[in-house]
Computed example of a mutant assay.
Amino acid sequence: MDSRSFSLPIVVASGALMLFHTSATYALNGTELTGYGVQAAGMGGASIALPQDSVAAANNPAGMALVGNRADLGLQFVLNSLNIDYAVPGNSLHSGIVAPVPEGGFNIVVSPDVTVGMSLFGMGLAANYKQPALPGLGLANAKSSLQMAVVAPTVTYRVTQNSYVGVSAQIAYELFEAQGVVAPSSDGSLSALPNHGTRSAFGYGGQLGWLWTPSDIVTVGATFASKINTSALSGYGNDLLNYNAGKLEAPMHFGAGIAVRPLQSLTLSADYLHLNWRSTALGDAATFNWKNQDIFRFGAAYDINSRWTVRAGASLANCVIGSADTAPNFLSGGVNSKAVTVGASYRFANHVELNAAYEYDLPVGIVGTGRSRGFNLETRTSVVSVGVGIPF
């Protein structure tokens, strides 16, 4: 590698960080995307045992051991339509969002046993109804935005001839805004919560990963990530998030996966991933009441020739909210949890890759019950992903 090889990761990382700072995100599994990395996104997110680019540490830090010297930069455009009947008959709200979610990374092979690198990825949710939640109360337009950018410096080590471990620190920067939120007063009437504007917070966490290649055709992986603990979002701890001291964290998660190559040109992959929302503010039973998620992801990749690879996959999970939880979640709407995906890659003669993927989420409709009676929610989501990978 010459000096230009070392400067390339710096350029990619700097560009990704600038995009993170200016973009709003919207997620599929709660606040998280179905898959991180454009190639993984085309395979239903199945990636714990199948690292394909330098975003791999978002899925399993040990995966960086197998991606070689490379840099990646991508964008996942989340297209979401959210409709809700809010509280009184005839009061219907609509939110339509196109949200770019940037990601990227770089990886350097230091020795046959050690790699160092960094993955950058985002998570969040958003809604913008462009009108008040209830008419006649003088409310501001109802909208919300949660953005969390995560930088994951990563080191891997080969512990045996065919097994690897990886560790990532997770350093997060969070932006949050909620406006036009209505809450019941002590006398039972509805009143607006204060608008504190956009507030920021920092967070930290860590992730461990393991990969094992018992043969040339099988790879097995496992990963565990701590909760990303965050500082308080100034002002929101006094009202909307007072039950959690103004904090919104990313959940602890763990998972395992397997990848099998029955043919030289065909790779099959499957994952199980558990997201522990109950350990975060969003899982508080008295407010948002998000449920833990069990996610099953399946993918296939087929090399047509040395230039073209095509992919397909599916991701199946339980919804984070139940029918009694549509009212407190009208500003989140991250309820799409079953998706089918396709993708493709083209490699130029210099090995630079162009990657693309498309995800279609099955529509979700929930009729509110109990404390959410009269709050009926319907949402449709799709994701278009594009990216470039540059080996060096």
Rank of each mutant, 00 (worst) to 15 (best):
V181I: 10
A225Q: 10
Q52V: 12
D53P: 01
A40M: 03
G35F: 00
Q76F: 08
N329V: 07
A41P: 04
N242F: 13
V11K: 12
P184S: 04
I390L: 07
A127H: 00
F106N: 03
G188Q: 12
F202R: 12
V384L: 12
V98C: 05
G370N: 09
T379V: 03
Y164W: 06
P363E: 05
G374S: 08
K247P: 07
V88K: 11
D303T: 02
V159K: 12
P51Y: 02
F254H: 01
N141Y: 09
Q76D: 13
N128H: 09
N141W: 06
Y302S: 04
M43R: 02
S163H: 09
G334L: 04
V88G: 00
Q39S: 11
G333H: 07
D271C: 05
A256G: 15
C319T: 15
R371V: 12
D303F: 04
P262C: 10
G299S: 04
S337T: 04
T219N: 03
K247D: 10
N29I: 06
A301Y: 01
V165K: 08
M43S: 07
V218T: 15
S372P: 03
M1I: 15
L120N: 14
A201R: 00
S345C: 04
G42N: 08
N91E: 00
K143G: 00
N128Y: 01
R70D: 14
S234H: 14
P363T: 07
L273R: 08
S215A: 07
L82Q: 14
F121S: 03
D271A: 00
C319A: 10
N350I: 13
V67L: 11
Y129D: 02
L50A: 10
A65C: 09
L125F: 08
A281N: 09
G389E: 06
N336I: 08
G74F: 06
L66E: 06
V181D: 00
S382T: 13
V78F: 01
A201N: 02
L17E: 15
K130M: 05
S345Y: 06
D85P: 00
L175S: 11
M64Y: 01
A317H: 13
S119L: 01
N318A: 13
A232I: 06
N318K: 07
A312E: 05
S145H: 15
I390R: 08
G209T: 08
T34H: 10
S345P: 00
L377W: 10
N355Q: 10
A127P: 02
V364A: 08
Q147W: 08
G90M: 13
A140R: 07
G257S: 02
F6N: 15
S111R: 14
L273I: 09
S382V: 07
N305V: 02
N83C: 05
A152T: 14
G45Y: 03
S191W: 08
T287A: 11
G246M: 10
V12N: 07
V67D: 15
T115P: 08
L175C: 08
F20A: 11
S382A: 12
G221D: 11
S231A: 13
N29L: 13
V320E: 01
A149C: 02
I48H: 04
F202N: 13
A312T: 10
L233Q: 01
T156N: 05
Y36G: 00
